[in-house]
Nucleic acid binder design. Structure first.
Lengths: 221, 221, 221, 221
DNA sequence: AATGAATGAGCATTCATTCAT
DNA sequence: AATGAATGAATGCTCATTCAT
């Protein structure tokens, strides 16, 4: 096949060494495998936690050999630190998309929470990946929260066009809001690492509290 | 030795087998050992985390034999679930004492936070015991937070004498407040599992946000 | 490419398949690669020992692919057994050259030792290649020592023209001398696999002892 | 049983807590196991070398569980460093005993070599334990050779009562002699890690050479 | 000829728990 | 009641060799 290609169409790739396509194909395959491993790891973390996410379990689920794991990750820790960024990125994107055109805070919060909740429900294992990351993938955890708080802060600012708070003030606020909703979710919306709908009224409570808390916060500076 | 004691004073308690004092003494000793083990475990968790809190380390620190551990706890998990209730109770009490006579919310929050922070600074290992408990001692973690939210809710209600919110509403609010402050602390006040003072302004930001958030929350029901 | 070459000049060598020049060029290239691999292996053994001389390390250093290794050696063991003969040959030659025209034993010993020492100092990794070879490349090790003892024996015989000892007697003697100097070097001239100068007097001690044995050694002090 | 003992002979141990016998018994058992492990390791090293002396093999041979190994040694390296001192001590003692009353060098050498050879033949695996130790248990190896050279030097001095050489001179000499005989043994007396009798004449060659060096060796044939 | 992804057996070490003493 | 030796499954990781491309 290679022979035929190089004979029949020697000019197709403009004289480039015919190595590229091969290595590109390989690189794609490799990247695909890397993602499969991370998906497998995510599911296993969802079920057994990071502590139960042994290389043996991951490779069995990803249907690769034990040794192949180390072609894609330098260590278990390395993999742990990639699970959240990879699997969490999509969630962040979904949330960002959901709030891209909101104009006031309650819309922001409502849509953001809905998108967040929808994603967690659809990909139930993400919740555990995220909640245990503080311990097992601290770098990823903090990077994730920096991102989240940053984006949140930007949306908050956009939703209050006349307000002139500093970046740090908005990030502080975002941090508190994330904490409040995380604890609400943890206390009322999670059983055995599985997300369930919040009891009626909780979400509204959060929205109300948040709205006036912010007004007061901003007014009193 | 035991035999002799029970034999030499059979009449003191009117013919009933006079086991109580002895077993009481034993029980006291046993209880003391149990507490020593839990203290040791607390310190080890503070230093190495629950994951590094092996029975070997704990028994070495508590100066008991490996096997003796199982006279006091049925398993490692059992011990994990007792560390937080035992060591955390004191902190809860300190906080409760600090806020027992407050009359308005900002005093409540200020004093509560100060007491909390003071305790964590004085007993640095508690922070890790608490923060990792969600993962390694989930039952204890949730019981602790139930307690905390409950007490918090009661204080909130007391600080707003004319308000008629339901218990559940106050607990929901307490949960959000705990989340907000926990995340603030985690993001700005902890490095390498060690508490450090919050940057200036963070605490005030929390107090302001909290005060008006609550007012709005309560007014709009 | 190969195809084209063999097709375009079929007549040059009178109809015989004109493989030779090509395969010669190839063979040369192959031989060069083989040597590069062995050089790389030598350096790695010098630094990490045979046990640390993995195929991965060697191929990385020789800048060839992992698989290409097996085009030149049938196994790791095979390579191990070729490192010493290849890299040691030069040393043996240097020593042989140094002693080619000596006429008495003390000159023989002095010059031989100096040449040996000079070579080891200049190519520090050879020492480890040699000293660990008994374990990891036993065939090569024994072949090397056969060679060494053989040449040594011949020089000894040449330095004693009137002596009629058998070859075996001279080889036995050579073996003992090699052992004596090797142990002297090992005990007094090597730290952490690196050759350093012998303490003053050791070399002279060896020379005296060798000449006259214990009696002479003791008498001549 | 314990009860009976403490009742029937309360004075036998003079009031000492009856814990001692138990822990002594335990300690003896433990020591016995430690030695069994080292014996097993010695045999395995004799057969497969240090590189093949895995904990799995050792514990299987010593009929203990995998984990029990670590009750007696802190690591594989720790064990490696104890094999030679433990198994080699007996050999050194046998040699020392054999030469305790010699009065001249040739007797010293003859008896020492015979004892050495006899021991190696009876405990064939020691040879490999010793010869590979330089690489796998360097500390033990050098300690062993320091001991050996030291004792050897003392014997040499004793066998030459009128001689006033320094300790260092005698140790240097001992080192060369050990080297010479080791290489003789290695080259003529070992096949596949198994000791076999030296060919006739080799031992005599060594004795002659040692006494008078090359000159004597050659003259006395 | 040359590549490098894939394999899978092997390794040292840890540790909660049990149980004979 | 108290001890601590013993168990054995489990873990993360390495590496010589093979083989599809």
């Amino acid at each position: 096949m290679v022979f035929i290609l190089t004979q029949t169409s020697p000019t197709l790739n403009g004289g480039l060494p015919r190595k590229r396509p091969v290595s590109t194909r390989r690189a794609q395959k490799s990247e695909a495998t890397r993602l499969e491993i991370l998906e497998a790891a995510g599911k296993i973390i969802g079920k057994y936690g990071y502590a139960g996410c042994s290389i043996a379990r991951v490779t069995a689920k990803a249907k690769i050999s034990h040794g192949a794991f180390y072609l894609h990750f330098s260590s278990q820790k390395d993999m742990f630190n990639q699970v959240l960024p990879t699997l969490g990125a999509e969630m962040l994107k979904m949330i960002a998309d959901a709030i891209v055109d909101v104009r006031d805070i309650s819309e922001l919060e409502q849509r953001g929470l809905e998108a967040n909740f929808a994603y967690l429900t659809k990909h139930p294992y993400i919740y555990r990946v995220l909640s245990e990351a503080e311990l097992f993938a601290p770098e990823a955890f903090h990077a994730y929260h920096d991102d989240l708080a940053h984006g949140y802060a930007r949306s908050l600012r956009r939703s209050r066009p006349n307000d002139l708070g500093s970046d740090d003030e908005y990030e502080t606020l975002a941090t508190m809001l994330i904490g409040a909703r995380t604890y609400l979710l943890m206390r009322y919306g999670v059983t055995n690492h599985v997300i369930k709908p919040l009891p009626p009224g909780k979400l509204e409570a959060y929205l109300k509290f948040v709205a006036d808390g912010i007004n007061g916060y901003m007014a009193s500076r």
